[in-house]
Design a protein around this nucleic acid. Structure first.
Lengths: 251, 251
DNA sequence: ACTTGAACCTGACGCAACGGCAGGATTTAG
DNA sequence: CTAAATCCTGCCGTTGCGTCAGGTTCAAGT
């Protein structure tokens, strides 16, 4: 009655046809998502053409990440697909934000671990606290988009490049500190070269984006002691020294 | 024996102390992740200082998204935290890529649905096919980073701006088509204005990024018929017309 | 000492979307 | 007519707990 001699499939055939598993079709039957419109006298499931079409719709909606229950509700009566999708999109965005935050912390943690070696169980806590502090600090100074941009740039540059740049900082800081201690004039060629190198390395982070650059500077200025103590970052004096050096060259 | 008069906590106290739930502590005991080092004669759990420290480490690792089983293995014997974290990071990256792809499809789908109205069940399949095709096409012409940048820009611009820009395209295309049909010279002021408007709207997408712009142009050129039929995109002739108009103004 | 309310215990089901197995019936090819 | 393939139903396992349920113990007030 489901069709005038319409074709029909058994579970295994339908499974091969659609790339799903037999178990999945059983499951969909069980939860009332797709019940075969017929059965053989012995109880074998028989799917008609309507069923197959329905299945394809189910798969389509499933690929959008919708839960089966929602799909079922959608197929019986439609409480507005558009609204539902937008709502789902918001949910996906939340997940996305969460997993991006997780990734940030993980990256920081990996960097920290390979920088200071495997933490001796007690240090793990301290390390995580630091990682969280860094993460919070970043979040205070950068928008979600800017953080994504930073991550992007680092991915694009590749790991070895990032490590290379990171490795050059302590060296550069030491050199500048030496000149600062020696009282070298900011206008001296040596200091000018160092300042240029400094800006190049910074460029790696902000990529020329003025928004990123400003955020970076503000974070630097506001948290210089913390950065200095925890990561051997430059002191406020050093920042000022470089600033003066740049002022000389641009005047 | 666990300490010389060391302090101890009962589940509820520890729960309040750490912000976890009693059930969670029960669970950690059950799976062997954190078994209290002592019990009262009647069986109430007593956590010592060591246990509390252990718990904090567990929470720290949990916040990195590590599964409890892995955390347990880490705490008993350490199969190198650094490797483990890197491995986990790779896993997180996979999830990230998956959810980004999902988000892309969802956004496309939402846009399509609100553009053509709620699909009449049968159309849903066609729509999804189109969405997939668009997604595949985008993936062929843009790198993952570029796609992220596109999304970012749209998020930054806000939904209403995006919709506004999208709404202006058909109008602009119609106007250009009219001039094209009328055989107006590409150098005519009217056409010049339209061409400038054209470039402005395009700017909204590539945001001035040359890589994005090139990808966009290549995709346009390679898939003009498809875009034209499916989305009322401009014809190759129209593209050429605009190109000539731009050539005039830049010469 | 007695009562009462708060805190504690163990055990078990639920969730999301199936995977995988067991044990038995049926279909189909040779 | 037999053997292999396919089908059936039902149940446990997954992840990290939430949420009862039914019973015991603790701490305080009278």
């Amino acid at each position: 009655m489901t069709g005038i001699g319409g074709q029909s499939w058994k579970v295994g055939q339908l499974a091969r046809l659609t790339g799903l598993t037999v178990r999945t079709l059983h499951h969909y039957d069980q939860v009332g998502l797709l019940c075969p419109s017929a059965r053989t006298p012995s109880g074998h499931r028989l799917y008609g053409e309507q069923d197959v079409r329905g299945l394809y719709r189910i798969v389509a909606l499933r690929e959008l990440g919708l839960p089966l229950e929602v799909i079922r509700d959608l197929l019986t009566g439609e409480p507005d697909l558009a609204d539902l999708l937008r709502e789902h999109l918001a949910h996906v965005d939340q997940q996305l934000a969460a997993i991006r935050a997780l990734r940030r912390r993980l990256v920081t943690m990996v960097a920290a671990v390979q920088a200071v070696g495997p933490p001796g169980s007690a240090d793990l806590l301290v390390l995580m606290e630091e990682v969280k502090k860094v993460d919070d600090t970043m979040k205070r100074y950068f928008t979600e988009e800017q953080l994504a941009a930073l991550t992007q740039r680092h991915e694009q540059a590749g790991e070895e490049a990032t490590e290379s740049v990171m490795a050059q900082w302590p060296q550069l800081i030491a050199q500048v500190q030496a000149e600062l201690d020696a009282g070298t004039d900011p206008g001296a060629p040596k200091v000018q070269a160092l300042a240029r190198r400094w800006m190049e390395l910074l460029e790696f982070f902000h990529g020329g984006d003025p928004g990123l650059r400003d955020s970076l500077y503000r974070m630097q200025a506001d948290n210089s002691e913390m950065l200095q103590q925890q990561y051997g970052g430059p002191s406020p004096e050093m920042i000022d020294y470089i600033r003066r050096a740049n002022a000389v060259s641009s005047s």
